[in-house]
């Protein structure tokens, strides 16, 4: 949690904004990149990810060094990576739901109405 996990930026998503897909040790998930708004990020760049948010941009060699360090930490990193993997699985499932939420917000419905609709 306190140590960031390096991820490689794969693709950016404008919609919803501030999201990017990263590859973390072979696990792909969407993370929030709003906190790096002042950096010019490109696919192939590496970032340190803390609990789902990219917090700083790093070089590839640094990314390898941090990954190596984390892998050595054993259980702590395994747990975090497992949590990330599980959460990535959920993200895929929830994507449809997010899109529905976005579309309805565009259509001018407020979230309470949406909830009523879903119930």
């Amino acid at each position: 949690m306190c140590l960031g996990i390096p991820g490689e930026l794969i693709a950016f998503h404008d919609d919803p904004p501030d999201l990017a897909t990263v590859d973390v040790s072979g696990v792909r998930r969407k993370i929030n990149i709003a906190l790096l708004a002042e950096e010019e990020l490109r696919p192939g760049d590496w970032v340190l990810v803390h609990v789902g948010f990219a917090m700083s941009r790093i070089s590839e060699s640094e990314a390898r060094a941090v990954l190596d360090f984390l892998e050595e930490m054993g259980p702590a990193y395994d747990d975090e990576l497992a949590a990330l993997r599980d959460s990535a699985r959920d993200s895929a499932r929830d994507e449809g739901e997010l899109l529905a939420l976005r579309d309805s917000m565009r259509a001018g419905l407020n979230p309470d109405d949406l909830r009523a609709l879903r119930d």
Binding site: G52, A83, E97, L101
Partner: peptide, 17 residues
């Protein structure tokens, strides 16, 4: 429930109004 990110907690809040 264990979550990886606070955003995952937000997802649960959306799903369980």
């Amino acid at each position: 429930r264990m979550v990886y990110s606070p955003l995952d907690a937000l997802k649960i809040a959306r799903a369980e109004p």
